[in-house]
Structures are given as structure tokens and as C-alpha cells.
Simulated assay, not measured.
Amino acid sequence: MLKTIILLTDTVQQQQPLANLLREHNRELAFCSALRAQDLSAIEPEILGEARLVSFAADVAVPEKFLLQLGYGAYKFYAAPTQYPGLPSPPDENDEAPSCYSVIAQSMMIWPDFKKVVGLETVTIPDGTVAAERERLVFSRLAHLFWRMSDMIAGGAEELPGIIGANDTQRPSLSMMN
């Protein structure tokens, strides 16, 4: 049974609102907070078997060993410009700022073939939008995606249903590595 959500965020101010939202859907949940990889390693190993990691707008590499110990998977919420998939900003400073972003919820797996997108929305930025407003628009859409999926995240399903990728429903395990 899902007992703990590990929230990995970019700032400490994001922790409480996200936890409060998830708690609305499952009052029994416990929460662990993390801002960096060292915080994850401080979590007691016996907690991980009944835990789910949720990374929200955090650019932190999660150790493979940690991912393998999670009983309810790991999911990251992030934004990426559609013009430059996988890159945080345009590759050349002379290029225009991206006009369209994808906000994505994706499973975190050590095997790329098993990753799947579980939530996706796009944000179109109006021409002439200044950088701070563009960042606010993208972040608010990311928060909306999290809000829309909060019931599934807080629920007890072992895996969230994918909308793109990973046709195989079997979750990889340590034994698959050998």
C-alpha cells in the first residue's frame, strides 16, 4: 500500500502546497521532502518499498539504486521547449525565445525503453512576452498538470497509466539487470 510520497522540488516553498494538494486525495499519506540527491539518500530504506517519488520542476539526478527501491515508482514534472526537445533553453543565444512549451509528467526509469509520459500539456507563449512572464505562464501550466493528476499520484495504483511510450506494462526490477 502506498504510504509515503517523496517530494523532490526546486525550492522548499513548493513542498507544502504540493503536499497539501496530495493530502486532499489521501489523508493517510506521509511525506518526505528533498531538494537534492543527498536528501534522498538520507531517507530510511524501509520507507522506500511503500513510497512514490514525485519530482516537481527539480533538476536533480536521482540515483539508479534509489529508483529501484521505490515500490510505487517515480515521476517527474518538467517543462521543455517544443522547438528544442530535451534542452532547457535555445542552443544559441541569438535565437528567439521559444514560443511553445510542453509541460510533461513522465515516469523516471533507469531503462529508457520503459519510460512513459503520463501527462502532457502545451503552452503557447504570446509574441512579445518578457522572460519573467513566460516563466510564470509555463510554471502555472506545470502546476495545473500536477493539480489535474494529483488524484492519481496520491492513489494507490502501483503505476500511473501512460499516454505515450512503454507498451510493456511490466515494471523493470533488479533481477532484469542480471
Rank of each mutant, 00 (worst) to 15 (best):
L48A: 02
A51S: 14
A51I: 09
A57G: 12
D59A: 06
A61T: 13
P63S: 07
F66P: 05
L67S: 11
Q69N: 12
L70D: 03
L70V: 03
A74S: 05
K76G: 10
F77R: 03
Y78G: 02
A79Q: 11
P85V: 11
G86E: 05
P91N: 08
N94K: 13
D95K: 10
E96S: 10
P98Q: 08
P98A: 13
P98M: 08
S99A: 11
S99I: 04
C100D: 12
C100E: 15
Y101P: 02
Y101S: 02
V103Q: 01
I104C: 03
A105N: 02
Q106C: 11
M108L: 15
M109Y: 10
D113E: 14
D113Y: 08
V117S: 00
V118M: 06
G119K: 03
G119Y: 00
G119Q: 04
G119A: 08
L120T: 05
T122S: 07
T122V: 04
V123N: 05
V123M: 03
T124D: 07
T124N: 05
T129M: 04
V130N: 10
A131D: 09
A132K: 15
E135V: 08
V138G: 09
S140A: 11
S140Q: 15
S140M: 12
L142V: 04
R148L: 10
R148Y: 00
D151K: 12
D151M: 08
M152G: 07
I153V: 15
A154W: 07
G155W: 00
G155Q: 03
E159V: 09
E159P: 01
G165N: 07
A166L: 07
D168A: 11
D168P: 01
D168H: 04
Q170S: 08
Q170A: 10
P172L: 06
L174M: 13
S175A: 13
